[in-house]
Computed example of a mutant assay.
Amino acid sequence: MPETGLLDPRSVRSLADELDLKPTKQRGQNFVIDPNTVRRIVQLSGIGADDVVLEVGPGLGSLTLGLLETGAAVTAIEIDEKLAPRLARTVVERMPEASGRMAVVHSDALQVNELDGDPVTALVANLPYNVSVPVLLHLLQHFDSWRSGLVMVQLEVCDRLVATPGSKIYGVPSVKMAWYAEATRVGTVPPKVFWPVPNVDSGLVRIIRREPPETTATREQVFAVIDAAFAQRRKMLRAALAGMCGSSAAASEVLVAAGVDPQARGEVLGIEDFARVAEALAATRANDAV
């Protein structure tokens, strides 16, 4: 057993064999087998012994052990019925002094809206590829106690999360992320450090919370405008928002009231612009109801 307690390729395979585990694309399972990559992720996350870390998709525990090594407490959410019960035992076996700082929640992260224990202060996770964006947005919405995070996602998803207005890849994930936080790409991870080996690179996204734009519109109202604007991203906003405004002409009036060019497309608007549009739309609906 390595002195550090971190998992290496041989121990990852041994655990998988013990569990008769066959990683599935359905659950986006790609396990980190390189201790140096784990240490790099933990170092970039900036967490310390005072943190309560939320981890999603811990798998066999590679990153979990690295997080515990800092002295932090970790709550890990794992959906897999084989992996969830094994994780706590892995910690006891490889890092027994940390077992009291470890909690495992056997559940779908998209169904978890609250957790027992101290409020989490940070999110650090190798998010399952297939649900990374929905899970991340869910955790931002329901757990506002964490102020910083570092997540590993498919590189294409990473670039979408950090994209800025005017970029060809700027879209719904980019804008919704901007409502909650500032996201920055801080590194890439090659396929060879995973088992099974994925056919794409991964990206590391640093997340720093910030307050949402000042607006009288609700998050739901703003997100509804974002979804409509990008549903057919090649359309001008006056056409893209016609359905929710009642007509193209009505959408133009709302956009003008918000200080937005009706002929613009969603990809050029920042989160503050979308908030103003949602506010103007809500005001128009309120006036129409009188």
Rank of each mutant, 00 (worst) to 15 (best):
A178F: 10
R13F: 13
G61K: 02
E93V: 03
A240R: 03
L44V: 05
R86V: 10
A224N: 13
P9Y: 06
G270I: 11
A249I: 12
L137A: 04
V254I: 13
R160I: 11
V205L: 06
E214V: 07
M177K: 11
D17N: 09
V186R: 00
Q154P: 02
W195A: 07
E3C: 02
T215S: 15
F274C: 11
R89A: 15
M95D: 06
G171N: 08
A229L: 13
I208C: 09
V193W: 07
L204T: 05
T284N: 14
V120E: 08
P119Y: 09
A224L: 13
R10A: 15
A103Y: 04
L136H: 01
W195T: 03
I41D: 06
A109W: 03
T216N: 13
A76M: 07
L161S: 08
I41F: 10
F274D: 14
H106P: 00
D118H: 07
E93Q: 06
V222P: 05
G61M: 01
L63Q: 00
K176V: 15
T215D: 15
E114I: 00
V124W: 03
E182Y: 07
G46V: 00
Q26K: 14
A249E: 14
V175F: 10
G166Q: 10
T37Q: 03
V175D: 08
V205G: 09
F194Q: 05
L150A: 01
S45V: 03
P213C: 08
F230Q: 10
P23D: 00
Q263I: 06
R89H: 12
T24A: 14
G246A: 14
L137E: 04
I169V: 13
V260G: 10
D50G: 11
S45Q: 01
L60D: 06
S248Q: 15
K22Q: 13
V91G: 08
R233K: 14
A239S: 14
G61H: 03
M102A: 01
Q111V: 03
M95W: 08
P198C: 04
Q221D: 15
L110K: 10
S148Y: 11
D51V: 06
D51E: 04
L115I: 02
V12Q: 13
Q221I: 10
L237P: 01
E114P: 03
A72P: 09
S252Q: 14
M244Y: 12
D116V: 08
M177H: 09
Y129L: 02
A249L: 13
R89L: 14
I169M: 04
P212C: 09
V157K: 02
S99N: 07
Y129C: 05
V133L: 04
E18V: 07
D201Y: 12
Y129M: 02
P212G: 10
Y129D: 01
S148V: 05
V260Q: 09
L136S: 00
G243I: 12
P134K: 06
E220N: 11
E253D: 15
V290Y: 11
R13H: 15
